[in-house]
Every structure is written in C-alpha cells, then in structure tokens.
Amino acid sequence: MGVMTEKASPQLITTEFDRWWNSSGIWVEPANKRRGGESGVQLLQQRDSTRPPLYCKRQAGHTYRTLLHPFGRPTILRELQAYRAFARLGIKTPNVVYCAARQQQGNWRALLVTEALQGFISPEQWYASKNSAALARAVLRQLAATLARLHVAGWQHGCCYPKHIFVKSQANEGGAVEIEVALLDLEKSRRRLRIKDAARHDLGQLGRHRGNMPETDLLFIHQTYQQALNDPAGVLLP
C-alpha cells in the first residue's frame, strides 16, 4: 500500500483513486463540514464475505497547515503517518488497505480505507456485557499501558474518546486470557515533547467523554498509567 499525492502518476490516481472514491456503502459518519472542507466515513462490504468489511474515509478540502505545508495538506496523510508510527510501537490499529490524496485545480481530495477490527468491541459494548472484576481490571490495565507506551514514545492520540478505543479479550491455548487494545481515528494525533502534556490531553479527554465508564475505573486507569510510566522498558516493548 502506497500513498499517492499530487506528484504521483495521473493515470494511477485516476484509475484506483476514482474506484475507491466512487464506491458506495452505508454512511456511518455522514460527511460534515470542518477545517474548510468535508469529511465522512462509509462502511463498504467486500464481495468475499469471509474478509472483513472496510471503512472508507473520504475528505474534500479537509486540510491542516504547518510550517512545512503552509498552503494546507489533507489530514488523512497525517493520520496515515500516525497509523504507521503506532504500529512500529506495537500498538494495534486497523489495517490500512489504501490511502491516497489528489489535488485538482487547487482542491484536495483524500481517501483512507481500513479494515474493520475483527473480534474487537467498543467500551460501551464491553461494559454492557457481564465481565468478572479481574477481567475488567486486566482490560483497564492494558488500556493504561497502551496510552503510556504511546506517550513515552512522544505521541498524543489527540482524540482519545471511548468511541476511538476498542478492546478484545480471548483465551489462548493455555487457557490464559489475552487482551488487546486498538486505537483508531488518528487524524488529530501529533508529536509531543513532554509526556505530561500528552497525558493531560488524552487522559483528560477520556475522562470527560467516558460515557458509562465508572469513575472508579477511570481512577484505576490513572493509577496503572502512572505505574506503567515507572517501567518505561516494559511500556516500550511490544
């Protein structure tokens, strides 16, 4: 999977980019106007029913500006950079199938297609199911460790809402429960020089938008997060 921008071959952009751009599906996040453009997400069903569904994020004129890109650059390209960085840290993210951006007459269009996370559920779904206290603590501990690993590496999620966090728990061959935490929607992710700045932002967002997460669980996340920071080697190793 490569990234195509305005410097890519026009023929390649026209064929593959337009095929994804014109694909149809159910809008799970209707296109809304922000950042001087529009952004929305569609759910696409693959012809092979054994393969996971796809999420296609489409953006038109949805850009951010930096010193390197004073005239604007699609936020999708920044999101792809974060996906790659998180994966290098051993943090689970959706598999990227396709990502591209094109500019015509000064207007940007960008696409990010990812696979649905198989076997993962949202925190809301997880809290609605019956779980033991031990499993609940294990999941929260893994979430805290994941955020600590991210922050120690100099990254901030930027949009750390429960709807952008998914969890998966399953028993391995030995009967022990393995837990995974996946992060998604990374278009606001950015580098931070100080761990405490990333922590204040992400943990603050999680607390304000925790939904049906009990306050005691939020406090436990803060406690185990601090414990993870005290063991940076363990945090940084996959």
Score class of each variant (00 low, 15 high):
M1P: 06
G2K: 12
V3G: 04
M4D: 06
T5G: 15
A8V: 02
S9I: 11
Q11T: 09
I13C: 02
T15K: 11
G25L: 08
E29W: 03
A31S: 15
A31Q: 12
A31V: 10
K33R: 13
Q42L: 15
L44R: 04
Y55P: 06
Y55I: 06
K57R: 08
R58E: 00
R58Y: 00
T66A: 05
R73W: 10
L77T: 02
G90D: 03
P94I: 01
N95P: 06
C99M: 04
W108C: 02
L111R: 00
L112C: 04
E115M: 09
G119C: 05
F120S: 07
Q125Y: 05
A128D: 13
S129H: 13
S129F: 13
N131H: 15
S132N: 10
A133I: 13
A134I: 07
L135Y: 01
A138N: 09
L143E: 01
L143Y: 03
A144N: 01
T146R: 03
R149W: 00
H151T: 04
V152D: 03
K163G: 08
K163D: 14
H164R: 08
I165F: 05
F166N: 04
K168S: 12
K168Q: 14
A176H: 13
V177F: 12
I179T: 06
E180T: 07
V181E: 02
A182S: 11
L184M: 09
D197M: 12
A198R: 02
A199V: 10
A199I: 08
H201T: 14
G204C: 11
G207Y: 09
F220T: 03
F220Y: 12
I221L: 08
L229I: 06
P232H: 07
A233T: 15
V235D: 04
